[in-house]
Nucleic acid binder design. Sequence first.
DNA 1: GTATGACCTCAAGTAATCTTGAGGTCAAGA
DNA 2: TCTTGACCTCAAGATTACTTGAGGTCATAC
Lengths: 154, 154
Amino acid sequence: MENHRSREARATPDDWLSIGEVSARTGAAVSALRFYEELGLIASERDGRNQRHYARHMLRRVALISVAKRIGIPLQDLLEAFADVPLDRPPSHQEWQRASRGWKRRLEERRQTIERLEAELTGCIGCGCLSMKACALLNPGDTLAGDGVGPRRL
Amino acid sequence: MENHRSREARATPDDWLSIGEVSARTGAAVSALRFYEELGLIASERDGRNQRHYARHMLRRVALISVAKRIGIPLQDLLEAFADVPLDRPPSHQEWQRASRGWKRRLEERRQTIERLEAELTGCIGCGCLSMKACALLNPGDTLAGDGVGPRRL
DNA sequence: GTATGACCTCAAGTAATCTTGAGGTCAAGA
DNA sequence: TCTTGACCTCAAGATTACTTGAGGTCATAC
């Protein structure tokens, strides 16, 4: 079995990490890392035995990928978000800064969707809109019918 | 082509909605509605011509499903969240209230994940942690190695 | 009376995100 | 020496969430 829990961290020379080490440190499965590499989200070098070795800055990328997944951001979007962050060397402060700005825009959108939904639900509990008169979210047809394209508020 | 834009809302007798009307009002495709029904997320009655007809309260469910999808909540989770909300009649205030509490728990988790990630990124931009010394998210190996299970903070 | 459009079923296809399996290499330990 | 464990490749399978296609039924509009 080749699994991200099956290996303890072990020191490798010259500061490179094996795929097992990256897996253990990030929580991403070995197979997932190979898949991310195929997509171009991460990159590795090969040693004399054809085994992958990762630079430390790759850990950042994997961590970001994991979190993004958790909140439902598709990998293709990450590819875009990472577009200007180099794979072959540790990115500069400025490069990360630019990428982070794009990230934050995406995150904020998502957070706002959630917050609005939370507010709607709170409102619905408190205000009695469950009588189906006032709540745009829970009752989109009544307040939003007519434009012919479905609910707009969220 | 059978599509949710291909139909204008039209009045039906006795306050039931056809699948096309539900589609137009919620923005969900006709095929998606049939799929949700198969999963048990929504329900319909059939008329003499074997066509689906939906009660108005079904619009709420579809609206919630659409939003949940948008923030990456799997349909199986919705099935759980809707477990105590009846399909065959408009849910009571109390029933919605209970369901909403479960919802809000899920939403809050997700929102917090996003907020923490936003904070990390903001911190990383402002504090110079891109030197790879202090940022737990972007550099999980350095601060979290040793417990052997990957990053914990997010 | 025929064409159109909204609906029906059932089966198969698609896209994203991986996992699993078969079959193999290599180095280190018992 | 033999086994074990970490790694490799490539192909196929799994899951989620639908969409598309083929083939059919009605009722209304022209």
